[in-house]
Every structure is written in structure tokens, then in C-alpha cells.
Design a protein around this nucleic acid. Structure first.
Lengths: 165, 165
DNA sequence: TGCCATTATCTTGACGTCAAGATAAAAGGA
DNA sequence: TCCTTTTATCTTGACGTCAAGATAATGGCA
């Protein structure tokens, strides 16, 4: 009987005409997500970052040498809007973690690249982050993780089918 | 091979020293959560609400007659800060969906209560919401939903143990 | 070549959230 | 009773995000 079960029971009592069975898994997923976000945010903060900044640095880092992408490519990778991307890059430039230069081949484009400082920072932060993520799943056995992941994978696939453009 | 698998493969190539196995389930959970939030937001919008307003109205509705709670009780139910709560109530009062009155027994407290208009609105909106939630889980069989929920429940329990105050 | 639709990025304004602090009332001990 | 601590709510300022629109360069077609 957790917090979501209690909400479920309240709805059963107040609106017995409704089928609220989906509420359990969806409500728990939301709570777990927010818990993960908070824990990971603490990890990022230890490196002077927030989730937004970490995402950009990590995307550049894992893209491999020369650790440079256009704002548009970063946007696509993170599923955020252009205004958000501009803002994120501004902050990281201000912190000296990435550089922004015009693209010589297409003047509409910019090239966002990890600085040495940004590279060193993200390489440490991502190692810390991987440990945090492992800790978040530690309550589950490998079998349980696999079952959870299978369900999530199927839900994610359904979503990607839905918005194919 | 979904988007998260591709990110995973990039990390394996760039940082083979790290154990990034937890990234898959956690990354997928985040994506699924954001997809759910977007879909549910569309449902709320059809009723002139956003997720914040829906949460407040739904919490009051399922609390049963007289459909009234203090801001503090609402805060605890939704795990948000006091400033956020004040703002949410302000918006709903402005829309005529809830009333805010001083508590006669404790002048520090307020009593937030559903208006008739708010009651009628949430009763329709929550029915719509239940359907949306069911649709979000439709890609999974009952067995798969149970397996997913079992994992989430365990993660949620671990979180609640962690912050027991 | 010249023009127009498309693409890429940045700007603006609004929103919801939080952290920290202000205000005010209640509760409890001396 | 008085005073301190605790509790409940609201205020303020900052942040990250988005939607819509502005700006500017590219590419394809006539």
C-alpha cells in the first residue's frame, strides 16, 4: 500500500464508475522519474552543472572527436526547442565549457564544440553520473531490471511509431 | 535498436571504461515519462487546464465531500513547494474553479474548496484523463503492465525509505 | 541569373517551478 | 501570563522551458 495505492482507493470510492487501473503504473512511473531527476540533479550539481548543461556536454562528448555539433543536431538529440538550445549554449559558453563558432560551410549554422575545460569536466561528471544511475536501479535484481526495461522499451517504441516525422 | 540503444553504443565506444548499463532503463523511463506528460497535457488542455491545475482539482475531488483542503495538505499530496502551491491556487481562484477562505479554527490556515464549476469541470476532465491513461498503456498486455508496475513499485518503495521524514 | 520557399538559429514574452525569506498565528514551557 | 519556537502561508527573484515570430542564409526552380 503505497501513496499511489491510496490515491487509487480514493478514486474507487469517489468515482466507482471510472476505470482508473492505468493510474497505478503511470503514477508510479511519474514519481520514480521525479525521484531520479532529483538524484541525478544532485550529481550534476557536484560538478557545477544542472541537467540541461550536462545533457549538452554529454551529447558532445559521446559524439566522438572533434566533439562538435551544430545547435540543430543537439536539439534533435535532446528533443528540446530552439530557444531552449540557444539558452543552454549561452550558459555553457559563459562558463567556458563549450565554444560557439560560425560554420564555414553554412553561415546559417553554428558549431558548438567542447573546450578542453568542458571535456575534462564532462569526463569526470559522466563517470559520477553512471554510478548514480547504477545506484538508482540497485533495489532491483537483474531480472527485474530486464522486465522493467522490456515494458519501457515497448512503450517507447509505440511513442516513436506515433510521431514518425 | 531504439534511440537509447544508440546513445548506449556511443558511450561504449567513447568510454569503454564506464559501466553504463543502468542508462538504458533510466533513459527509457525518462522518455516515456515525457511522452506521458505531453499526452496527458493535451487532455488537460481540452478542458482548459494544465497539469498543475488538474492536480489540484483532482486532489480536492477525490478527497470526498466537502471537497476542501488546506494549502498545506495539498502541498503534501503533490510534493511541491509552498510558493508553487500559492501560485496554483491563485490561478484556479481566478478561473472560478476553487475558492480560498480563511480557516475559522486556525487563522494561519486557508481552506481551498472546489466551486460547483470546479466540481463539474474536474468530474468531466478526470473521466477523459482515465481514458488517456488507459490508451498510454494499451501497447502492453496485462502481464506486461503487471511486470512493469512491480518494478516501479519497488523503486518507489526504495525512494520512500530513503526520505522517511 | 534572379526569386522564393526552406532551413537554421536567435529573440521575445509568458509560464510553472523552486529556494529563501517574510509575515503572521498557534503552541508550549517558564 | 509572557516569550520563544514551531507551523502555515505568501512573497520575491531567479531559472529553464516553450511557442511564436524575427532574422538571415541556402537551395532549387524558372
Amino acid at each position: 500500500m503505497d501513496a499511489v495505492d491510496r490515491i487509487f482507493a480514493q478514486w474507487r470510492a469517489e468515482r466507482p464508475d471510472l476505470d482508473v487501473t492505468a493510474m497505478g503504473p503511470i503514477g508510479r512511473l511519474s514519481r520514480v522519474y521525479h525521484h531520479h531527476a532529483r538524484r541525478m540533479g544532485e550529481t550534476f550539481a557536484r560538478h557545477g552543472l544542472n541537467g540541461a548543461g550536462f545533457d549538452v556536454l554529454a551529447t558532445l562528448r559521446r559524439s566522438g572527436p572533434p566533439h562538435a555539433l551544430s545547435p540543430g543536431a543537439l536539439m534533435a538529440a535532446m528533443m528540446i526547442t530552439s530557444g531552449t538550445m540557444t539558452n543552454r549554449i549561452d550558459q555553457l559558453v559563459k562558463q567556458g565549457l563549450v565554444s560557439r563558432a560560425p560554420d564555414p560551410d553554412d553561415a546559417r549554422r553554428a558549431v558548438v564544440q567542447l573546450t578542453d575545460k568542458g571535456f575534462a569536466l564532462i569526463d569526470k561528471a559522466v563517470a559520477d553520473h553512471a554510478q548514480t544511475q547504477a545506484a538508482l536501479l540497485a533495489p532491483l535484481s537483474d531480472t527485474e531490471i530486464a522486465a522493467l526495461d522490456a515494458g519501457l522499451r515497448k512503450l517507447m517504441a509505440a511513442e516513436e511509431d506515433r510521431a514518425p516525422e
